[in-house]
Design a protein around this nucleic acid. Structure first.
Length: 486
RNA sequence: GCGGGCGUAGUGUAGGGGUUAUCACAGGAGCUUCCCAAGCUCUUGACCCGGGUUCAAAUCCCGGCGCCCGCACCA
């Protein structure tokens, strides 16, 4: 089994996530987050949110249902409902436009019925095997909400970004008219994937954390760059280089200050949630793979089972003017007495892909075959587990008492008294709990406990009072112990 | 969506026209246990769904759904 398969197996067995609606046969493209998965995902979201709030970003929450007019302006209606054809013989699928052109027809047809009439009257051949194509169909990538009676058509959003763009003026007023301004939105997006696969990596309903950074177009400046870590960068024009973002910007590998800044920031976020730095790279999209709205995009990719998977896309886009043109509502901001329509640098995070990537990066099999999730302590579903070494001599009661007290500071503390101590350590290792707090005979007399660190399995003895007073994460004695493990 | 492979307890599996459907791990109850899935007793739990063939289908056939691999798609 490769890491992906092992993580999927563990995720289902321990309750991180599993396919939705399985008792009805399943529905591909949808996954449920289980008890541990919800906690883990929330921690990823919290990390992302705190990273942007501390950056001075502001947040918004807008509906998942969006009127057609918005997506007409954004270009999604036009770009995401292609007419397509399939060869009746070799089943090769192409855009209608492509096969038409290949057969010498320059007509542009945008209607399914018209397309079928045209194909019935004219000979259009498969570009691969030459068989005549007779049918076209509409390939919709957005979910349309049916049966609208009084309003126009409505769609489920494929990205959360438009909810920010249409509120730009209100947001900027709240932000007291300043630029640059970063607005973040967390929410569900919906994409009608033709063939969803790979668990959380490609779902029809996904969790997105999108940030729209509005900058002055001729500068595209956010903040002064710091050198930061060396990051793997794959520019569209050349081979991979390893460079900090400041020198990459200075050398012109990255085109703007804001793009460089948020590449570095994204790198930090991915590292903080538990993706190893050597498994992160930023790849600049080639011109032919750019989204319709973007002129330059760098994807953050994570190395999972020997293939690079896009986890975050950082796009240089310019949607505001389109909304101004469509609605007549001004989107310009006064900068030094000039009216400026901001440009946008958009880091868009696939939250589910971050969860999957961190699990696959954390997964580790010990020599004895036991599995461990080496999740960063702040990201792990539980921070610690309280375990009585044995269930007699009052140790179980003492442990329960300590558990109750710890919960006052930190709700993410587990209690387990069933099975041998080794079995309980193994259980916690498998769900990524960084610390196990064990009570033994000395605990009763000395008011101390042992703390076992997950990755090293080493233990230290600290006072119960310290745990109660300082909690687990950030506890000075645990900190000190950790340093001895390096 | 196409082609190929595969669907048996929570997980991993054995088997396969008539069986009480195999085994292990996990789970639950208890005993034992002073530090890494130990041991003992008891115990919960499965043939993806529908149709067909047959006296009889988990087993054979067809369809659906799901998963995996390739192709295509991936704003």
């Amino acid at each position: 089994m490769n890491v992906y398969e092992q993580v999927i197996e563990l995720a289902k067995r321990r309750g991180f996530f599993w396919p939705s609606y399985s008792i009805y046969g399943g529905e591909s493209g949808f996954y449920d987050y289980g008890p541990l998965g919800v906690l883990l995902k929330d921690n990823v979201i919290r990390t992302w949110k705190e990273a942007y709030v501390s950056e001075g970003g502001i947040m918004i929450d807008t509906p998942v249902i969006v009127p057609e007019s918005v997506f007409r302006t954004s270009g999604h209606i036009e770009k995401f409902s292609d007419l397509a054809t399939e060869c009746p013989k070799c089943h090769n699928r192409e855009k209608l436009e492509t096969v038409m052109k290949a057969s010498g027809n320059e007509n542009v047809i945008n209607d399914e019925n018209q397309a079928n009439e045209f194909l019935a009257a004219n000979t259009v051949k498969c570009v691969k095997c030459g068989t005549r194509i007779t049918k076209a169909f509409e390939s919709k990538q957005m979910f349309k909400i049916p049966d609208q009676v009084n309003s126009g058509n409505l769609y489920l959003r494929p990205e959360t970004a438009q909810g920010i763009f249409v509120n730009f003026k209100l947001l900027n007023t709240v932000f007291r008219g300043k630029l640059p301004m970063a607005v973040a939105q967390l929410g569900k997006g919906f994409r009608n994937e033709i063939s969803p696969r790979q668990g959380l990596l490609r779902m029809k309903e996904l969790n997105m954390g999108e940030v729209e950074v509005f900058v002055i177009p001729d500068k595209k400046y956010w903040k002064e760059l710091i050198a930061g870590d060396e990051i793997k960068l794959v520019p569209k024009t050349g081979p991979e280089v390893s460079s900090d973002v400041r020198s990459a910007f200075e050398k012109g590998i990255i085109s703007s200050n804001a793009m460089a800044y948020f590449i570095n920031k994204t790198y930090d976020i991915l590292k903080n949630v538990g993706i190893k730095h050597e498994n992160i790279r930023f790849r600049q999209q080639h011109d032919d793979e750019l989204a319709h709205y973007s002129v330059d995009t760098w994807d953050a990719e994570a190395l999972l089972d020997d293939s690079w998977v896009e986890v975050v896309g950082i796009a240089d886009r310019n949607d505001l003017r389109k909304h101004q043109d469509a609605t007549g509502e001004s989107v310009s901001v006064k900068v030094d007495d000039a009216d400026v329509i901001p440009s946008i640098i958009e880091p868009a995070y696939g939250i589910d892909r971050m969860v999957m990537s961190l699990l696959m990066n954390s997964f580790y099999t010990r020599e004895n075959g036991f599995k461990v999730l080496r999740i960063p302590e702040k990201i792990a579903p539980y921070h610690a587990a309280v375990l009585p070494l044995v269930n007699k001599d009052g140790l179980d009661l003492l442990a329960k008492e300590l558990h109750e007290k710890l919960l006052l500071n930190d709700p993410y503390v587990y209690f387990d008294q069933s099975g041998s101590i080794g079995k309980r350590y193994a259980r916690q290792d498998e769900i990524g709990t960084p610390y196990c707090i064990t009570l033994d005979h000395d605990s009763a007399t000395e008011k101390t406990v042992t703390v076992r660190e997950r990755d090293s399995t080493k233990q230290t003895r600290i006072s119960m009072d310290s745990l109660i007073e300082y909690g687990i994460i950030g506890n000075p004695e645990i900190r000190k112990f950790r340093e001895t493990l390096q």
